[in-house]
Design a binder for these strands. Structure first.
Length: 272
DNA sequence: ATGGTTGTCTTACAA
């Protein structure tokens, strides 16, 4: 059965407040390297929106023609070597924002836009490297400024999806080996408290709400055959306002198993 | 599991 048909069947029992949408987040770790995988993903899943992180491509070198040839539009905020975000969509993206007000930051980590009446806030939250490090302090500086910005977005846009690479594993259910990761970067109590603060602004962890008891991972270290051994963590998330009605979700783990993969797999949610 | 592996105008740094 084609996936598109499956989406409609899965969602038909829900009340529809906006167009049904399949929305994906994927840290591609270099769009230049991962472009073939992205084009395969678009053809296979026919998503309405895909938020990319770590594109690592400056805007003047973004592969616009390739994405448009696949039947999509794209907006982006990139830089050389590091970071970079892009949002791919079937329909028009308006009211683009690339910078957090009050945060003077050259790192390209935010791309907010409106698609079909839904505010799509695509983020590449800083990794933090190690608890207590300078980069860890930057992670929280960024997050505090972002949280203030997000409050305003939520007031303006009743239908909002906040998605991306959060670099936070919210609970031990999101970690293959919680004892190994206890207190480590992505799993520290301070990071988890910040994740809960974002949720408490009026958002739902859509993937977890649909799979409340199932360990699910979105990132596996390149080293030590971590993927083959299923040593993963869930750090890529789609949070949404209550109005959004998620009806199915999953991780396209298959894309992590391919040749020359990103270390993240795509995470998708269907909204009724 | 702290050993390693990716990606980047690389030989260091970020993840």
């Amino acid at each position: 059965m084609p996936i598109r048909t499956g989406l409609l069947l899965e969602c038909q029992h829900r009340a529809i407040h906006h167009l049904p949408m399949r929305i994906t987040t994927w840290n591609v770790n270099s769009l230049n390297v991962r472009l073939p995988h992205l084009l395969e993903y678009l053809a296979e899943f026919e998503p309405d929106v895909v938020a990319l992180q770590e594109t690592k491509v400056p805007d003047e070198k973004f592969p616009v023609a390739e994405v448009e040839a696949a039947g999509y539009r794209v907006i982006f905020s990139g830089q050389k070597t590091y970071n970079g975000v892009a949002t791919i969509s079937r329909d028009e993206a308006t009211d683009m924002v690339t910078d957090i007000p009050e945060l003077d930051d050259p790192q390209r980590r935010l791309l907010a836009t409106t698609i079909n009446g839904v505010r799509i806030v695509n983020v590449y939250i800083p990794n933090g490297q190690e608890v207590g490090s300078e980069k860890y302090a930057y992670k929280f500086h960024w997050l505090h400024a972002f949280k203030d910005y997000l409050k305003g977005e939520l007031e303006r846009y009743p239908q909002l999806v906040l998605l991306g690479d959060y670099n936070i594993a919210p609970t031990d259910l999101d970690v293959h080996d919680p004892m190994r990761w206890q207190g480590k970067i992505t799993c520290s109590e301070q990071e988890r408290a910040m994740f809960r603060e974002l949720v408490s602004l009026g958002l739902t962890d859509t993937v977890r709400s649909l799979h409340p008891d199932e360990p699910m991972f979105s990132w596996w270290d390149y080293r030590m055959n971590a993927f083959r051994r299923r040593w993963g963590i869930r750090i890529d998330h789609l949070l949404a306002t209550e109005s959004m009605r998620p009806c199915a979700a999953g991780v396209a783990t298959d894309y992590r198993a391919r040749e020359r993969p990103s270390d993240h797999a795509p995470v998708w949610v269907n909204f009724a």
